[in-house]
């Protein structure tokens, strides 16, 4: 990411698509799990990047050079998610392109995961998804959630523990 912040600071328009292509899969997959909905995740991912771009357009190059990009984009994404939960109206509207006519397959065990995530407290759910689905560092999760790194670590640890218990419960049930 270091090389990319320098490039973005020198020519935002030219390099922003590179930032999108590097981060979009993690952001989309994380939002896919957090929302449980393909289309919502798609819209939120788009909107987070568009907002990030508009904000960065107003930043001086020095500020861009010191940015931690992944945490920054996720800060916006989580804010959108919170605000969207409160009100459905949101600006700017995502650009909805003509449908390709097919939906890509859901990630594995979508149904089971949706139920599992619902059984976790929000902070743990976020921390586990950001860490283990989207691949953020503890520092980046701390940036994005505003929680201290030590708290994030314990959120992840507890979240994983809880998930193991939930999944063990499922296995026992399926054996009976």
């Amino acid at each position: 990411m270091d090389h990319l912040v320098k490039a973005l600071a020198s020519d935002l328009d030219r390099h922003f698509p590179v930032l999108v292509s590097e981060l979009q899969h993690g952001v989309f997959s994380g939002l896919r799990q957090l929302t449980g909905d393909h289309h919502r995740a798609e819209d939120l991912t788009q909107e987070a990047f568009i907002r990030a771009y508009r904000a960065m357009q107003t930043y001086p190059a020095e500020r861009i050079k010191s940015m931690r990009l992944r945490g920054y984009v996720w800060t916006i994404a989580l804010n959108l998610l919170r605000n969207q939960a409160r009100a459905e109206s949101r600006q700017p509207k995502p650009v909805r392109l003509e449908d390709a006519g097919y939906l890509p397959p859901d990630p594995p065990d979508s149904h089971a995961w949706r139920r599992r995530w619902q059984m976790l407290p929000t902070a743990q759910r976020r921390a586990v998804i950001l860490r283990h689905v989207s691949g953020l560092s503890y520092q980046e999760i701390s940036d994005a959630t505003g929680r201290p790194q030590s708290t994030v670590r314990s959120d992840v640890r507890r979240g994983l523990g809880r998930l193991r218990t939930i999944i063990d419960g499922e296995d026992n049930r399926s054996i009976q």
């Binding site: 899969h25 788009q46 995502p94 586990v128």
Partner: peptide, 22 residues
């Protein structure tokens, strides 16, 4: 959990580049 990392649909990147006006 790692297997839940999937590829973002093409529309995401296209929508961002179009939506920003780049």
């Amino acid at each position: 959990l790692g297997r839940l990392l999937t590829t973002a649909p093409r529309e995401v990147g296209e929508g961002v580049v179009l939506g920003t006006g780049i």
